[in-house]
């Protein structure tokens, strides 16, 4: 049970926090279509997190709203990549590309998780994440083969985001149990597939893959160690909810 709870918190928190970050593009995207795209992906991810918090609720954890809005940063199990500020569009696009490539592969295998409620959600989410993944790949290929400035900006963001992206695959202290009970194939197996998937796209552009073997991953998120950016974001996200946690919406 503890292993399942650990796994669910990790993937639900990733979705909620990146969903909220994506929503910060609403109204300020570089073009209207991208404004809508990031807002739509935000809606998908927050909606998906709600369904995962519902499973957690059925396992004795708090209801989705209090769980999302009343925890402090150290209780969150998201990776540090998702909590970083949106920055400029090049960073948000690179983060979206790196994260959703991992997310598609993660939910591909979760479709056959031994936990049936999680497997059901994974079957549902997979098609939705596919759109996120297609969106990211389309823009990386387009901009990664465009102007000198675009390529330079994307490369800088890729180099900056990469240690954080490797932090997605921080293993759990319950990793053996998660794998042994067939809840999930595990972070190491996922990382190997992810490296191939992103390299395949990057190799179709003028960007180059960072030398990942020489990079120290930014771990800590999965055990509640976060960057300075998470707590203020959480406070803003739950500001209205905390005015009256018992209010009916």
């Amino acid at each position: 049970m503890e292993a399942l709870i650990d796994l669910l918190y990790k993937i639900a928190d990733d979705k909620l926090i990146l969903g909220h970050r994506n929503s910060e593009w609403t109204g300020v995207g570089p073009i209207l279509e991208e404004d809508i795209a990031f807002a739509s992906m935000a809606q998908d991810k927050v909606g998906q997190s709600k369904a995962l918090y519902d499973i957690l609720n059925s396992l004795g954890e708090p209801a989705p709203d209090p769980n999302a809005f009343l925890r402090n940063a150290e209780a969150f199990r998201c990776c540090q990549l998702v909590e970083l500020p949106i920055g400029e569009y090049d960073f948000s696009l690179i983060r979206h590309f790196l994260f959703d490539a991992a997310e598609l592969l993660r939910f591909d295998t979760l479709r056959s998780s031994s936990n049936e409620p999680l497997a059901q959600l994974a079957r549902k989410f997979y098609g939705e994440i596919k759109y996120h993944n297609l969106h990211a790949k389309t823009w990386i290929k387009k901009l990664g083969n465009s102007s000198e400035e675009a390529i330079e900006r994307l490369q800088n963001s890729l180099d900056y985001a990469f240690p954080y992206a490797l932090g997605i695959f921080e293993t759990s202290y319950l990793e053996e149990e998660i794998i042994g009970r067939n809840l999930f194939e595990g972070e190491v197996a996922l990382k190997d597939k992810w490296l191939n998937a992103i390299a395949e796209v990057i190799n179709q552009t003028q960007l180059h893959m960072p030398d990942y073997l020489a990079i120290a991953p930014k771990f800590g998120g999965r055990v509640g160690e976060h960057t300075e950016y998470l707590q203020p974001m959480i406070e803003e996200m739950g500001e209205v909810f905390r005015l009256d946690p018992s209010a009916e919406w």
Binding site: E33, I36, A37, S40, Q43, T138
Partner: peptide, 13 residues
């Protein structure tokens, strides 16, 4: 296709 995301989650442009 102009955008795979539209005014609602179930529509593209």
């Amino acid at each position: 296709m102009k955008s795979m995301f539209g005014p609602t989650l179930c529509r593209s442009l």
